[in-house]
């Protein structure tokens, strides 16, 4: 058999989804010695197998969850762009696939200009949100928070430091930190995330300069 006969057979086999490579002795003999036909043959097999390669299904609720997350993340981004938060609040965690985003919340009302607010006297409240995304669930992750003097966690007045153990589920984990500010305070929240000997930090600048309604919470 010559090359053109062999190629005809190859095409037939591919077209009719016949088992390949080993059943047709004439083809096998030929491609053992003819590099070009062998290459065409294996190309054809590879292409067919790749096209038909089964792909496992995503988790059952993936589509709905992904859509929901996309909407949520964009709403948070919008808040971020309104506030003009520093790039330091964005952090790439381990392996570049896990990341944390910190976002002081300004309720995300459409049309709220970055400098539209007035400095309000007395105590101000604001929620800082941190999204921790993990590729796998993490048992016993440690979270630690350091606060500057003029900022406190709402339910922990007087505490400058807090450390606790938590479990993170696979995917996005939203951490909400309700903060109380002294007067027109400006400070930062330092958040440390530790897991398996690795530590990542993010420092989020926070300001109490804008008056706003009680928080519109974006929950996960």
């Amino acid at each position: 058999m010559n090359c053109s006969d062999i190629r005809q057979r190859i095409n037939d086999e591919i077209r009719h989804d016949k088992p390949l490579l080993t059943h047709d002795e004439a083809v096998v003999q030929h491609i053992r010695h003819c590099d070009l036909c062998r290459s065409l043959y294996t190309d054809a097999v590879l292409t067919r197998e790749l096209r038909e390669m089964p792909v496992p299904e995503p988790r059952a609720d993936f589509a709905a969850r992904a859509i929901q997350n996309a909407v949520k993340m964009n709403r948070m981004k919008r808040i971020k762009s309104l506030v003009g938060i520093s790039a330091a609040a964005m952090l790439i965690l381990a392996a570049g696939l896990v990341f944390t985003r910190g976002l002081p919340d300004f309720a995300g009302r459409p049309g709220l200009a970055p400098n539209a607010g007035l400095t309000a006297p007395g105590r101000m409240e604001k929620t800082v949100r941190v999204m921790i995304e993990t590729r796998q669930s993490r048992q016993n992750a440690t979270l630690a928070i350091d606060l500057t003097e003029n900022v406190a966690l709402k339910n922990f007045p007087g505490h400058r430091q807090l450390t606790w153990q938590t479990e993170l589920t696979q995917g996005r984990n939203l951490l909400e930190l309700p903060l109380v500010f002294d007067d027109d305070a400006e400070g930062y929240v330092n958040i440390r995330y530790r897991y398996n000997g690795n530590e990542q930090q993010v420092r989020i600048p926070v300001r109490a300069e804008k008056e706003h309604e009680p928080q519109t919470t974006i929950t996960s």
Binding site: P58, R59, F62, A66, N69, A70, M73, N74, L97, R135
Partner: peptide, 11 residues
Amino acid sequence: KAEDLVQELLV
């Protein structure tokens, strides 16, 4: 990784 990629795309 596939879920992450699709998620990122949707965002």
